[in-house]
Measured scan of single mutants.
Amino acid sequence: MKVIFLKDVKGKGKKGEIKNVPDGYARNFLFKKGLAIEATPANLKELE
């Protein structure tokens, strides 16, 4: 799953980066803790 990092996550990504991460990791950790959001076309446009 492609995500946009909202905060730095040690060993995974830095704020503003767009990366592919495992689906479970994104849903169960990154999204729940507010560390990242899904890289949807709308979210990507908002980032620019």
Rank of each mutant, 00 (worst) to 15 (best):
I18N: 02
G24I: 12
L44E: 06
G11Q: 05
T40L: 07
K15P: 05
F31E: 02
K32S: 09
K19L: 10
V9T: 04
L30F: 02
F5T: 00
E48K: 10
E17T: 07
K45W: 10
V3N: 00
E46K: 14
A36I: 07
E48N: 13
A26V: 07
I4G: 00
I18F: 04
G24R: 12
K19A: 10
L44R: 07
K2N: 12
P41E: 14
F5I: 01
T40N: 09
N28W: 12
V9M: 05
K14R: 13
N20W: 15
A36D: 01
K32H: 08
A36Y: 00
E17D: 12
L44D: 05
V9R: 01
D23V: 15
F5L: 07
L30S: 00
A39V: 06
I4S: 01
P22L: 08
K15T: 09
L35Q: 03
K10A: 13
F29R: 05
A42H: 12
L44Y: 06
P22M: 08
F29S: 04
F31K: 03
N20K: 14
N20I: 15
F31W: 02
E46W: 15
E17S: 05
G24Q: 12
E38Q: 11
K12N: 08
E48G: 14
A42Y: 08
K10E: 12
I18Y: 03
Y25P: 04
V21H: 02
A42E: 14
P22D: 10
V3P: 00
M1I: 15
P41I: 12
A42I: 10
L47Y: 14
N43F: 11
L47H: 12
D8W: 08
F29Y: 15
D23T: 15
F29D: 05
A39E: 02
K2I: 14
P41G: 09
K19P: 00
T40Q: 04
K10D: 10
K19I: 10
I18D: 00
T40G: 05
K12R: 14
K32I: 12
A36M: 01
L6Q: 03
G13K: 01
K15M: 10
L47A: 09
Y25A: 05
K15E: 06
F31I: 13
G13V: 06
G13Q: 03
G16T: 02
N28E: 13
K12H: 15
V9N: 01
V3G: 01
V21D: 01
G16H: 08
D23G: 12
K15W: 05
I4D: 01
G24T: 13
Y25V: 06
N20R: 13
G11I: 01
G13E: 02
L6D: 00
V21F: 09
K45F: 10
P22Y: 08
Y25H: 03
N28T: 08
F31D: 01
E46Y: 14
L47T: 08
D23Y: 15
A26P: 01
K45H: 11
L30R: 00
A42M: 11
F31V: 06
K32V: 14
V3Y: 00
G16W: 10
I18K: 03
G24K: 12
K33E: 11
L6H: 01
R27V: 11
V9D: 01
P22N: 10
A26S: 04
A39M: 07
R27N: 08
L35R: 03
K10H: 13
K10W: 14
E48R: 10
E38Y: 07
E46R: 13
V3E: 00
A42N: 11
L30I: 01
G16M: 05
K14D: 05
F31H: 01
F5Y: 08
L44H: 06
K19H: 11
A42Q: 14
G13H: 11
N28Q: 10
G11L: 05
E48A: 14
A36N: 00
A26I: 07
D23A: 15
K10Q: 12
L6Y: 03
E17H: 04
K14W: 10
N20P: 07
E48Y: 12
G16E: 02
G13P: 00
L30Y: 03
V9Y: 04
I4V: 11
K10P: 15
K15G: 04
V9S: 02
P41K: 10
N43H: 09
F29N: 05
G24N: 13
R27I: 14
L47D: 06
F31S: 02
Y25N: 04
V21E: 03
L30G: 00
A26W: 08
K7P: 00
P22W: 07
E17Q: 10
N28A: 09
N43G: 08
G11Y: 09
F31G: 01
I4F: 08
K32T: 10
R27W: 11
E48W: 10
A26T: 07
K10N: 10
A39F: 12
G24W: 15
R27H: 09
E17N: 04
E38L: 11
L6R: 03
G11H: 08
L35V: 04
Y25M: 06
